[in-house]
């Protein structure tokens, strides 16, 4: 194993660790919202600090590898992919943290019926599956699995669009729960963005493995 191989292996290991932390953040965010558990919301904030630290470390490690080893071909693509994956993971972590913030500042538990009718719970499930599968695709360099993630994002987009009408109708008959409706709308928007960010992760995995750029193209 060359020196560069060792550095790249470590970079991959650290990226996987950061990825796992973000997955835990999202799982806790979902549970905190459904169970209205403010303690979990606090945990997410603690993990967020570790994710931020990883972001800085991975950025620095990529910079060092680029400067010291001048990687080319698949090595160069890997380092570039990690730089972008790192950014997207940190953003997903931010969304989980923001959802935790909404839970922490809510006075009342979320209406279970509303969570079901807006399909918010389903959105959480889809986004978590996407995130877990993207990690698997990265770890085992599975470009086929990465391509499947691209289509899953469409489901989140559809739910995001359909939720508007559901929330509008619900607000008309529940004037006393306007704040909760706004909170749910915010979380839906954030999960839609999480889907986009996870799609970016999948695109970077495909770039690294196949040298194909999929951004701004249809899956």
């Amino acid at each position: 194993m060359t020196h560069l191989d060792t550095e790249i292996k470590q970079l991959k290991k650290d990226t996987i660790e950061m990825w796992n932390l973000v997955i835990v953040q999202m799982e806790k965010a979902s549970k905190a919202m459904i169970d209205f558990d403010k303690g979990l919301a606090k945990d997410i904030n603690t993990i967020e600090k570790r994710v931020d630290a990883f972001e800085l470390k991975l950025n620095m490690d990529c910079e060092n590898i680029l400067a010291l080893f001048n990687p080319v071909a698949i090595d160069l693509r890997f380092v570039i992919a990690v730089l972008k994956i790192n950014y997207n993971l940190e953003r997903i972590g931010d969304y989980a943290n923001s959802i935790a913030g909404i839970v922490s500042h809510s006075d009342t538990e979320f209406d279970k019926e509303l969570l079901d009718s807006t399909q918010l719970t389903k959105m959480f499930e889809i986004s978590q599956t996407m995130l877990r599968e993207s990690l698997e695709a990265f770890e085992y360099e599975n470009n086929k699995l990465a391509r499947e993630i691209l289509t899953q994002d469409e489901q989140l987009d559809k739910i995001n669009v359909s939720a508007n009408a559901v929330l509008k109708n619900s607000i008309e008959t529940n004037h006393d729960k306007i704040e909760q409706h706004l909170n749910i709308l915010s979380i839906i928007r954030m999960l839609e963005r999480v889907g986009d960010q996870t799609k970016n992760l999948a695109e970077e995995i495909i770039f690294f493995i196949e040298a194909k750029v999929l951004r701004h193209s249809k899956p």
Binding site: T2, L4, V72, A73, I74, L76, R77, A211
Partner: peptide
């Protein structure tokens, strides 16, 4: 240097 076709080229340029 970004995406060689042949694996031997890739092995050579990546050391």
């Amino acid at each position: 240097f970004t995406n060689p076709e042949n694996f031997r080229t890739q092995n050579y340029v990546t050391g």
